[in-house]
Design a protein around this nucleic acid. Structure first.
Lengths: 359, 359
DNA sequence: TTGTATGCGTTATCAG
DNA sequence: CTGATAACGCATACAA
């Protein structure tokens, strides 16, 4: 008796109106039964639910609900890179983790979007997806264009580690200051010959020794800020750029730094822990001991798989908190309030990879 | 004359109807101008666009469009674990990468969902999010419940590496056969004392030597299949389970295996490359040479950061292709066709980490 | 506590 | 090539 899915015509899926009618209540009552937004007599409630089950009605259609409510419960997270690349970076993963948590608390889901129009003709974009807000991870020049579409729609936006204009709240790090702190630590240890291995300068991912022109043309703010911080202390430090934040890239850069036995740095500041791990490996490969022969510092404070017994000297950044803060900022803006930019600070951590300069 | 944003009352955002009216065309024509679904006279088109710009109309509201179309352009990807955990695994990352690509081709975005009802009271779930289909990564018992809600909604579902019932298409791997192939390779090399380090048996992530009861109770299909494959060749191999697919976990398991100099395996089959990397490190730590003293094989065929000069002997799985295939299957189902399960095969790769058994 | 009425912003259909 | 019309499925203000 409860088998046939549709009592009347079996073409259409049941709607809340069908349920209401079959249960002998009004649509609004049925709606309230499902949303719980108002009290309903227990008897009514049960009757509605029973009828719904009978009709195979599984709850309000989210599409219709979001039209009516004006909210979809979805927040876009826009990445500049390929997923594979983004999640190779433990810092980004941790951040995404905090972000998804923060957004979940707010009742929103995360729509992963890559800022790449080349995908499909009708692939969803920041401009066309049914989203309530957007979080940008980084902000390339191209992304800024897309951004305009979102702003025009009047949706809240937050940028993590990027600049999208003064009126878009940012979640940032005191990159410069933290980098300077590391540099001062090494200076205090007596190091005179310092070098740094940076994150990529731009999306080109060019590697190797940097000319002053290349440095002047850095478009990635994080790279620039950390570099400037070091230069406050070591204005003349050798600068080698890595192609990405990866152990292998650090290894390549490290081999370059340690190639000439006559002209080696005694301290290397890497702009990420992964790069630092590679530099350490390069040092060991060159027969150098860390930290006796060369000190190596990183940046990020993540757990690097592959460091052996070393504990990296580094600037620990609150990656997950950054993500969570972005979620909170979105929540505030969704509630109609203004959200201010937030600047997180890193915590210096002295590990076992830095020590006094060799005499 | 073109300044005032709103001709009538300036409270509401402009709708396509406003645009149509102001441009002196019908709503349907205006709609077509934006969707491009039908030819429109160039003059009309330009007029509509001009008026739209004037009114600050930025294109159709995705919420309304998805209600009308019955499609939201969003596909849910449900993970069993925390994001951080999921993306720690390079195989999953690669798979997600292929998946996002595959779905983008189809014009869909990816809504990241964790199968955790504990998040927020109104956090989106498989049951309540405006999605057109769902891809499950793995399929825990709890997830199977959630699943029912999705099926009741009549949405297409695909499961990657998991069992959600016979009528849900799966994307799988020939885990058993590939594992057996590795085992046969080692047997052919003369190894008699073989051990294996497995992936977690269940969500408990218990570590260490496995009793036959524990083995009988394995709930993770991947673990079970790879284990069975090895046992076809080495029925009595020692079995140690790792707590996760990580280098560190492999290191722990390896230390256990190599603890007793009198009773060491000469060949270790790890159920993932990351675990294998840890086992190799443990071997070296114990003063063993790979592959002279002990052979180590992995599984996955991913690039492991931290293996040094070793090239792992492993079963290379087409991770990104799995994701892409899931996307393709969804596309087919969305088009109303039936999608069959797909079983991918691994490619055996002989590296430098396995060699003849020591005499 | 329940019911009535209305509109959310589109787009498919079909006739012109 | 364009226009009129009719849903799409629901949630809310307000009245009862």
């Amino acid at each position: 008796m409860s088998l046939g899915p549709d009592p009347v015509k079996s073409r259409r899926r049941a709607t809340i109106a069908d349920v209401a009618r079959a249960a002998g209540v009004s649509p609004s009552t049925a709606s309230v039964v499902f949303s719980g937004k108002a009290p309903v007599a227990e008897a009514t409630r049960e009757r509605v639910l029973a009828v719904a089950a009978d009709l195979g009605y599984t709850g309000p259609d989210p599409r219709a609900a979001s039209l009516r409510r004006g909210r979809s419960g979805i927040v876009a997270v826009a990445l500049e890179e390929h997923l594979r690349t983004a999640f190779l970076d433990p810092v980004k993963t941790a951040m995404m983790d905090g972000l998804t948590d923060g957004l979940a608390e707010l009742g929103a889901g995360v729509l992963l979007l890559r800022d790449d129009p080349g995908a499909g003709p009708d692939a969803p974009t920041l401009a066309t997806a049914p989203i309530d807000a957007a979080v940008l991870i980084g902000c390339s020049p191209r992304m800024r264009e897309t951004l305009e579409a979102v702003r025009a729609r009047g949706l809240p936006i937050v940028v993590i580690e990027g600049d999208a204009g003064d009126d878009v709240p940012r979640i940032e790090l005191d990159n410069r200051e933290a980098a300077a702190q590391i540099a001062r630590h090494l200076l205090a240890l007596g190091h005179r010959r310092a070098a740094m291995v940076t994150l990529p300068f731009d999306s080109g991912r060019e590697r190797g020794d940097a000319t002053s022109e290349r440095i002047a043309a850095i478009t990635t703010p994080v790279t620039r800020e950390r570099l400037e911080g070091v230069r406050e202390v070591y204005p003349d430090a050798r600068v080698v750029s890595a192609g990405a934040s990866m152990i292998d890239e650090g290894l390549i850069a490290g081999r370059l730094l340690f190639a000439d036995p006559e002209d080696r740095p005694t301290a290397v500041m890497a702009q990420s822990d992964l790069i630092a791990a590679g530099v350490i490996r390069a040092a060991e490969e060159a027969g150098l001991q860390v930290p006796q022969d060369v000190s190596v510092a990183g940046f990020d404070g993540i757990a690097v798989d592959g460091l052996g017994e070393h504990v990296l000297t580094t600037a620990v950044q609150p990656a997950a908190e950054k993500g969570r803060a972005a979620g909170a900022a979105i929540a505030r803006m969704l509630a109609g309030e203004q959200a201010a930019s937030i600047r997180f600070t890193c915590t210096f951590r002295e590990g076992t990879t830095t020590g006094p300069a060799p005499s």
